[in-house]
Amino acid sequence: MIDGREREWADWMRRAIDGDADAYRRLLTAITPRLRAMARRRCDQFGAPPSEAEDVVQEVLLAIHLKRGTWDPARPLGPWLSAITRNKLIDSLRRRGRVVNAPVEDLIETLEAEETGAITDRLDVERVLGGLRDPQRDIVRSISLEGRGVRETAERLGMSDGAVRVALHRALKALAAIYGRESR
């Protein structure tokens, strides 16, 4: 069961790196509930609100995304994913003043969280966007909140597709830095 999941996730990741956005979305959508279960369990231990767990989930997702070039497609995905998750989860919780003293479980073996209650986030979107510069802010708003694609966003902002892609990548790096700052 876990072997099957490992193969499936690795396959999605390989296709994602080759530019298959649908495969990438399937992977991130499969990872997120498991990550959420891990983060909530940790936050429960500290009596921290679930909204804090959601910020941790987003920080880990950003790290998986920004560091995916370090995964060697010839190797299994599970250990790499667990190492990223472990490093980032511990780091993120520590910055929030929580000390993780039990070992962090493997992401790929974790069961999904039961969806109890609304998924809330603490980092309000306007606050996140406020940390970005133009045109990054407009691009992030257009793609995430307004659900536009790169082409449509480029046309609306009078930019080339390539310039939008470059700015989007920079925006995600900036976002990772904002999450790191806001939780200090």
């Binding site: 994602a16 979305r25 997120t32 987003q58 950003l62 920004l66 986030d121 995430s144 990548h169």
Partner: peptide
């Protein structure tokens, strides 16, 4: 920020997937 909105951003971004060994 909603996690689903963040995922929209991540799947749209095709940059930064260059293997580390090549960068070194």
């Amino acid at each position: 920020m909603k996690t689903d909105d963040l995922i929209d951003l991540l799947v749209t971004d095709t940059g930064g997937a260059t293997p580390l060994a090549g960068r070194i």
